[in-house]
Simulated scan of single mutants.
Amino acid sequence: MKFLQLFGRLRSIVIGMVHLKALPGTPRRSLTVAQILEEACKEAEIYRKAGIDGLVVENMNDVPYTLHVGPEVTASMASICAAVRQTCPHLPLGIQVLACANQQALAVALAAGLDFIRAEGFVFSHVADEGLVNACAGDLLRYRKTIGAEHIQIFADIKKKHSSHAVTADVSISETAKAAEFFLADGVILTGVATGQEADPRELQAVRRSVQIPVLIGSGVTLDNVEKYGDASAFIVGSYFKHRGDWRNNVDYEKVVAFMEKIHKLRD
Rank of each mutant, 00 (worst) to 15 (best):
R142K: 14
R142M: 15
R144Q: 15
T146G: 10
T146N: 14
I147L: 10
I147Y: 05
G148Q: 11
E150H: 12
H151N: 15
Q153M: 15
I154V: 15
I154H: 09
A156S: 15
D157M: 11
D157T: 10
K159F: 10
K160T: 15
K160E: 12
K160C: 10
K160H: 05
K161G: 02
S163V: 07
H165P: 13
T168R: 13
V171M: 03
V171A: 01
S174A: 14
S174E: 04
T176A: 02
T176G: 08
A177R: 05
A179C: 08
A180C: 09
F183D: 03
F183I: 01
L184V: 05
L184R: 13
D186A: 02
D186C: 07
G187P: 05
V188M: 09
V188G: 08
I189Q: 05
I189K: 11
L190C: 07
G192D: 08
G192P: 06
V193P: 00
A194T: 01
T195K: 02
G196A: 04
G196Q: 06
G196S: 07
G196Y: 05
Q197A: 10
E198K: 02
D200W: 09
P201T: 04
R202N: 14
E203D: 15
Q205H: 12
V207A: 08
V207S: 08
R209Y: 01
S210H: 02
S210T: 01
S210V: 00
Q212A: 00
Q212G: 13
I213H: 07
P214L: 02
I217K: 00
G220C: 06
G220F: 09
T222I: 05
T222R: 12
L223P: 04
K228A: 14
